[in-house]
Design a protein around this nucleic acid. Structure first.
Lengths: 139, 139
DNA sequence: ATACTTGCAAATGATTTGCCAGTGT
DNA sequence: ACACTGGCAAATCATTTGCAAGTAT
């Protein structure tokens, strides 16, 4: 796989990004045709250089996989996103496996719900940000 | 809210269905314009008569809310769906709330992963079926 | 030459919006 | 009359596919 221009731009953009970015966003910012962005993301994903996540509704979001696998928590009201290391969810994952027979992961589809602020209670202290595509209106 | 023809057909179809059904499916089966199906589903949802779930990729799926709230587990490989009563997940939900500050639910977005068969191990004994829209090819 | 890449147009699929004509009260 | 309803065309959004011209090796 050659490191073509569009390909390099996509990687650089993801590297510079502060969080997951959608293909349409990349295409617009980089001034590269969306088709090319999609094709490159797919190819890069096959090579394990990028991956994508789904945070609730809307476009898939792309990221560079870090050294440690990250899983996502997403607030469907305020669009806050929290990333946690896979290890932190192992115990929960294991309980789910034992009780229901599914090996779940929140790397491809986030864990979705309401953050404490949006529900009204305590706090947390993990790295969080907001989904770029904006918060969600009442469903 | 009047119980118009299209509205009644949608409700009857959901009642007869064995699992969540998409709007496009309803439109096709009932021979009712998709627009009408969407509008009715949305209206019915606002009145709490129906609700919808997202099982991985693809269209949203609609169901009649039962007496007890159901949450979904979905296998991204074989499309197997398992429904569990909300209570059964309360302990897990609570752990997630304490550790990460999110009140998650799997009623709107399913808990996604691989079922034991697709991963290779033990078993479970809950009501399960397959997503109508077919299984997923290797990502 | 030959394989890899890209842009552009067009298609797909789910979902939404505008509009207008028909129906129920 | 007047609000509610359904169908149809068209628009939107994310994503995919076909194709033809351009580029690297």
């Amino acid at each position: 796989m050659r490191l073509s221009t569009a390909r390099r731009l996509v990687l650089e953009a993801l590297f510079a990004a502060d969080g997951p970015v959608s293909a349409p966003q990349l295409a617009q910012v980089l001034q590269v045709d969306a088709t090319s962005v999609y094709r490159n993301l797919e190819l890069l994903e096959r090579h394990g250089l990028v991956r994508h996540v789904h945070l609730g509704h809307g476009a898939g979001l792309w990221v560079l996989p870090g050294r440690q696998e990250l899983e996502y928590l997403y607030c469907e009201r305020c669009a806050k996103v929290t990333q946690v290391a896979a290890d932190d969810l192992d115990s929960i994952r294991e309980q789910i496996r034992q009780r229901f027979g599914y090996r779940v992961r929140f790397t491809h589809f986030a864990l979705i719900g309401l953050c404490d602020q949006c529900a009204g209670s305590s706090a947390s202290r993990v790295s969080s940000y907001r989904k770029l595509t904006g918060a969600v209106r009442g469903r």
